[in-house]
Design a protein around this nucleic acid. Structure first.
Lengths: 222, 222
DNA sequence: TACGCTCTGTGATTTTTGTTACAGACACCC
DNA sequence: GGGTGTCTGTAACAAAAATCACAGAGCGTA
């Protein structure tokens, strides 16, 4: 299997909707679109930067964050393979610049569509449009929930919710959790200690093992 | 001028993009779409409610809010004439229910498009699609800024920003401002008193007169 | 004018969150 | 094994925001 054909296969696997395109159209769009690889920590885009193109993620994940002048940050959402950074569509369609930062969380492989190709697809592929709209809709509701959580929920509840929403032995640092919540590391440490004392989880270096997810979930929904 | 023709004229005035439609298509869509009038305070939609149709605002404004179980609320954004509640598009396109509440702020007149008509328009009118995408993009960035403000800015700065963003002698109650910020009335009263002592504004019953908008703006951007 | 209503002012107190400042624990590398 | 850097625990403190509890002001109206 040739290199390019392999890429095409992966692309179609991740983005089944692209099968709807006539073969000639497909190769026309992706003929010269190489796969881009970005290691963890790469800043894909940043605030007030114009938009270069539209990424289709084949593997990896990206954190989209807002960061405050004092160094604190807050995660707006996460983009995984098969999704696409809707913020980019927003830039491309709204003709504005980025208003957040995108950082590679797990090594990314992606194909980047030129703005022109993106617009063309939007114009004449109904499935692609639906896909983009669906993502938009999802992000919008996610963001509304996020605003609501930040405004009304206490940090302990938000932390509990975050913990149960992630893989179980969770390998991460307190600082990373704080950055996801938009808070400070000490707060997270304190709260985690509290949870541990309740017997809800066990703590280790860069490791959180949840023992009683039910209790945590109940607490988060209080 | 007949009643219906007058409505059509107003609709086209508010939504110039509809002029792009062939006349037959236009009348087909809006033939039986009467103008709906809703007085202040009406709850147009609410959380977990399915979506009835797509509104095109001719006049008035709608506050889209999240409300907490303890009675506090927070405004997500405002929808004015010529705009449209993007949340509704989100529902219609994402097939989900509303995740916020819409309340009429100033008496509303609107035309409601059926879900079917909305989908049809999306499918075959490029200008309409662009319009909707533009609104989506705008809301998305607005919401991101809101999250950022709620997470990182102090209440006094947010209040200052809110004040300068509104018509000058501002006629409203402290409670209404608190609801817009997602905070409590007492906080707003206290902070306003502080601003008044700085000589930045003058307070009256249901009235705030800004004297020094520059100082307020500078403070809000601190 | 007297009553009732909503709106505002304000102090006291509590809760929640953030900050500062270290000390110890652990992991990796030489 | 010792040094170095990151990660975690924790206490004391400061700041911001929320809550409670009223008093009084302004306004419409009976």
């Amino acid at each position: 299997m040739s290199y390019s054909a392999e890429n095409d296969a992966r692309l179609l696997e991740r983005y089944p909707l692209l099968r709807e395109l006539p073969a000639t159209r497909f190769s026309e769009l992706f003929a010269n679109a190489g796969v881009m690889r970005l290691p963890m920590g790469t800043v894909i885009f940043d605030e007030n930067q114009p938009c270069q193109g539209f990424p289709l993620l084949l593997a990896g994940s990206v954190r989209v964050i807002k960061s405050a002048p004092n160094g604190r940050e807050l995660q707006l959402y996460r983009v995984g393979a098969g999704e696409s950074c809707i913020l980019t569509s927003s830039c491309l369609l709204g003709h504005s610049n980025y208003r957040a930062r995108g950082v590679v969380e797990q090594d990314v492989e992606m194909v980047v569509l030129s703005p022109a190709a993106f617009r063309a697809l939007m114009a004449d592929s109904a499935p692609f449009r639906d896909f983009i709209f669906g993502l938009f809709a999802e992000r919008l509701t996610d963001l509304m929930e996020l605003v609501s959580a930040v405004a009304f929920q206490k940090l302990d509840q938000r932390l509990a919710a975050l913990l149960v929403s992630r893989p179980n032995p969770l390998r991460t640092t307190h600082q990373a959790l704080a950055d996801e919540l938009g808070s400070a590391r000490e707060m997270v440490s304190r709260l985690l200690k509290g949870f541990a004392e309740q017997g809800w989880l066990r703590l280790g270096r860069e490791q959180i093992e949840i023992i009683d997810p039910t209790a945590l979930r109940r607490f988060s929904e209080l």
